[in-house]
Amino acid sequence: MTDDERLAADFVARRPDALERAYRAYGTGLYSVARHVLGRDDEAEDCVHDALMRVWQRPQAFVPERGNLRSFLSVCVRNEAIGRKRTAARRFQIDQRVARIEADVSYELDMPDHVELGRLRAALERLPAEQRAALELAYYRHLSHAQIAEALDVPLGTIKSRLALGLRKLQDAFAVPARV
């Protein structure tokens, strides 16, 4: 059993120190995701803390069938961060304006130069243009499906399908064995 597998098992069993160990193992990645979405250190810190506490409050939140504890926690933090970002946008009543502005932004990827992007770029470029556009607005611009539908002037159901199909194709393209 690997360290990650042992940690996942302890998390499922809710051993008292499992959350702390999970943070020690994955904290940098979790914080980086929150910081990337929110853009501020203090908000990222609160986001990671709150997301982990919400998970820890739900005993059935992570089960062995979920597979990968790190990915599970990372997406929880991501959803928390995106939710906070949207709430802030609503608070200032600029949500719709942001969506329209974002829709006018070029779909070129906005990613750091130092990372290795070959495989990702290739997988994205193989996607149909409409799936890629929807996926990039969701992943890079953090828009909800409703915002994407409005921004692209496409029915909501169509956007949901494009997002799901696009991500499944990326999933197939990566086609990596499950990590626990």
Binding site: L117, L167, L170, Q171
Partner: peptide, 16 residues
């Protein structure tokens, strides 16, 4: 779990 793993791979390749 599968979808989360894909997003994490994207994150690993794009987020400093």
């Amino acid at each position: 779990g599968e979808a989360e793993r894909t997003i994490t791979l994207l994150d690993d390749e794009t987020i400093p």
